[in-house]
């Protein structure tokens, strides 16, 4: 088998990775993530409003919200510890790192070797631990409830996500995000049945992880059904702004990861200006379609009870393991 990193292989290690242009593109990817993430949230909200026959909020509403929150004072509970004030920044930093290593425009990212897909799951886990601990910090009933439920969703979703990643890693013989995307995007077009299973499992996981409808409702006002909102009840001002921004970044990261793993076409392999300029409109079109589908799925589903969530995520886990088994049993014998 001609492996991508073999001597003289297609993607022999490029020295240019650490060059100035590489760093510039890396910076562009981060800035793009920071800028596009709230826009994606705004777009999903707008689509959802249309589909539900409501009048839609402006597309830029999340930016107005962030600006307003940053202007406001932080109203801090008496019992809040320094951990509570540190957590929003930590969560934001984790999400930024996650966005920086997922190939959105190009696979040639200087930060890409920092963390492979397993470390990516780790960084998402780190953010989850911080937000759950912060939720328990003030010591209110809803806070601890939210923290507990977030950890519940987390421990159900994380193994499923890892199994999805294992399936893609077995196909590309690598856990590095860049190599996976290069292998999947630039090889001859083969339909992998295992990727179909993995794709469905990944969709389930991303709905749960991003506090989306069958598991959580981002627009809920009923405390007892909340997960994400219950955790951040005590936050205000710039802390809340950072957490909301981090949540948008998480949605963006999951969308880009899904696009990179299952629809990788259009992501540039090198850092040629033309390829990258082509990649931006392709990414935008994919995100627009993806956001619309997300809103559509949310509209035709109802939120389930919290104890149905294990069934939902258990299905995702089984599908991911099934994908892995399909890969091992059917595809490696060819």
């Amino acid at each position: 088998m001609n492996l991508p990193w073999g001597p003289g292989g297609e993607f022999a290690r490029r020295e240019a990775a650490m060059s100035i242009s590489g760093l510039l593109w890396q910076l562009l990817a981060i800035v793009l993530a920071l800028a596009l993430a709230p826009l994606l949230t705004g777009w999903v909200n707008q689509c959802r409003a249309w589909l539900q026959n409501r009048s839609a909020p402006p597309l830029l509403q999340p930016y107005y919200m962030l600006h307003k929150l940053f202007l406001k004072d932080v109203v801090l509970a008496h019992g809040a510890s320094p951990l509570f004030r540190f957590a929003p920044f930590a969560v934001f930093g984790c999400m930024l790192l996650a966005c920086a290593i997922i190939p959105t425009l190009s696979t040639d990212l200087p930060l890409a070797p920092t963390a492979d897909t397993i470390a990516l799951v780790g960084v998402l886990g780190l953010a989850r631990i911080f937000i759950s601990l912060a939720a328990m910090d003030v010591g209110t009933s809803f806070g601890t409830l939210g923290g507990r439920r977030e950890m519940l969703i987390g421990f159900l979703a994380e193994p499923a996500l890892l199994m999805v990643i294992f399936t893609t890693a077995l196909i590309s013989q690598s856990t590095s995000v860049a190599t996976i995307v290069e292998t999947l995007a630039h090889r001859d077009f083969i339909i992998y049945p295992s990727l179909a299973f993995a794709g469905i499992a990944f969709t389930f996981v991303s709905f749960a992880e991003n506090a989306r409808v069958p598991v959580d409702n981002p627009a809920t006002h009923l405390e007892l059904t909340m997960i994400h909102e219950a955790m951040i009840l005590e936050y205000s001002g710039r802390h809340l702004a950072l957490i909301e921004w981090a949540a948008s970044l998480k949605l963006y990261a999951y969308s880009c990861l899904g696009l990179a793993l299952f629809f990788p076409w259009g992501i540039a392999a090198g850092s040629s200006v033309l390829g990258l300029l082509m990649a931006i409109p392709v990414l935008l079109v994919k995100l627009v379609i993806g956001g619309f589908l997300l809103a559509g799925i949310e509209t035709i589903n109802a939120k389930v009870r919290i104890f149905r969530a294990p069934e939902f995520l258990g299905t995702a886990f089984l599908l991911a393991v099934l994908g892995l088994l399909v890969r091992l049993m059917l595809e490696t014998r060819v």
Binding site: W5, R13, A90, L96, L97, A115, V123, Q173, T175
Partner: peptide, 16 residues
Amino acid sequence: SPERASYEPLIFLATI
């Protein structure tokens, strides 16, 4: 090999 799998904890921590 770095293409197969890599992890740079120091840069990871520094970025955050």
